[in-house]
């Protein structure tokens, strides 16, 4: 309760300040759209350099610049930390006319479901999804469980008998919990906040189950056995791994590359950005990169993406309640 009231006060103060300022973001936002972009576009990535979100942002930026789909280059800025709060703060500091945007994925929704930062979907205007990827659930290759059915049967017979490596409040935890809820089993957890940690625990025999991005699984290659894939359809690289839906569990998770702008960005400028991004994701080289990294290249326009995100957020909130 205290948090909420403080948040409201802060918002009010911020609002008052921005009104009082003669040359502020609002003035900039009203500028004519035809000369957009007028300067390099700052793309904020809420992670350290080198991760998938970062690499995709840089590749797309390069491709857009190379083909002149925008008159200005895209400059990627990494703002890691605070479950994305740092990146959102930086976005709110910048222009709200499309010159400052964020490239994120659905960890954003998890931060919202967990009520971590003081931001919500209302703070953003969705530019669109440029493709995405789904994860797999894996066990150690020496495990006695050959299929998902074996695993579920074992867990139903002997609840909480297996250890799942998750970072509580991160994607692996939420995806695992959605499946557990749907299939009606329960696991024990062990903290593993990065893919490297999960890999270490699985390969070292200290955990039984872990979630990996399909690309992480394929890159590892040895020592792991995938049981179920969380995409809507089977992945061509993993033809033998069934989807959760095929197995009769209504759970799927796609983690999109989501481009976001501040909520007050003019629609014309968002459209210009969306146009450039759509061209980039349809570029053969980008498609090749996506496919060789088990990502699916596709374009989801802003409004549709926002609708999908809202739906996912509600599902996540239900899981988040079980944590508190």
């Amino acid at each position: 309760m205290i948090g909420i009231s403080r948040r409201t006060i802060l918002a009010t103060v911020a609002g008052a300040l921005s009104l009082a300022m003669p040359v502020g973001p609002i003035g900039a936002g009203a500028a004519a759209a035809q000369d957009f972009p007028a300067k390099p576009i700052e793309v904020i990535v809420p992670f350290k350099p080198g991760g998938r979100t970062d690499v995709v942002a840089r590749l797309m930026g390069e491709k857009i610049q190379e083909n002149g789909w925008l008159s200005q280059p895209m400059a990627v800025v990494n703002a890691d930390g605070g479950a994305g709060a740092n990146a959102v703060n930086r976005m709110q500091r910048g222009d709200d006319d499309g010159h400052t945007i964020v490239h994120w994925h659905h960890q954003a929704l998890i931060a919202m479901a967990m009520e971590l930062g003081d931001f919500s979907l209302d703070d953003f205007k969705s530019i669109g999804y440029t493709g995405g990827g789904s994860p797999v659930w894996v066990v150690n290759a020496d495990s006695e469980f050959q299929t998902m059915e074996d695993l579920v049967a074992h867990l139903k017979a002997d609840p909480r008998s297996l250890v799942e490596a998750v970072g509580i409040g991160t994607i692996p935890h939420f995806v695992g919990a959605m499946l557990a809820k749907e299939a009606g089993f329960e696991t024990r957890y062990v903290t593993a906040n990065s893919g490297a940690d999960r890999l270490r625990l699985i390969l070292g025999g200290n955990a039984d189950i872990a979630l990996f991005a399909a690309s992480e699984y394929l890159a590892q290659g040895e020592g792991l056995r995938p049981l179920v894939y969380f995409g809507r359809e089977r992945l061509p690289d993993l033809p033998d791994v069934p989807t959760a839906i095929e197995l009769g569990y209504d759970v799927s998770w796609a983690n999109p590359n989501w481009w976001l702008a501040p909520a007050s960005t003019p629609d014309e400028n968002v459209a210009i950005l969306a146009d450039a991004l759509e061209k980039a994701i349809n570029d053969p080289e980008i498609i090749e990169y996506f496919e060789s990294n088990t990502l699916q290249p596709y374009w989801t326009p802003g409004a549709e993406a926002m609708e999908d995100a809202t739906k996912q957020l509600n599902a996540l909130k239900a899981i988040a309640e079980t944590i508190n």
């Binding site: 930390g81 703060n89 970072g167 509580i168 944590i323």
Partner: peptide, 22 residues
């Protein structure tokens, strides 16, 4: 202060979002 990595929730941030990164 920051996000308690064991449960992914804010700890000792006293409601400040900049304190989330500790």
């Amino acid at each position: 202060p920051g996000i308690d990595s064991s449960i992914g929730q804010a700890r000792l941030t006293f409601g400040s979002s900049t304190m989330l990164s500790g």
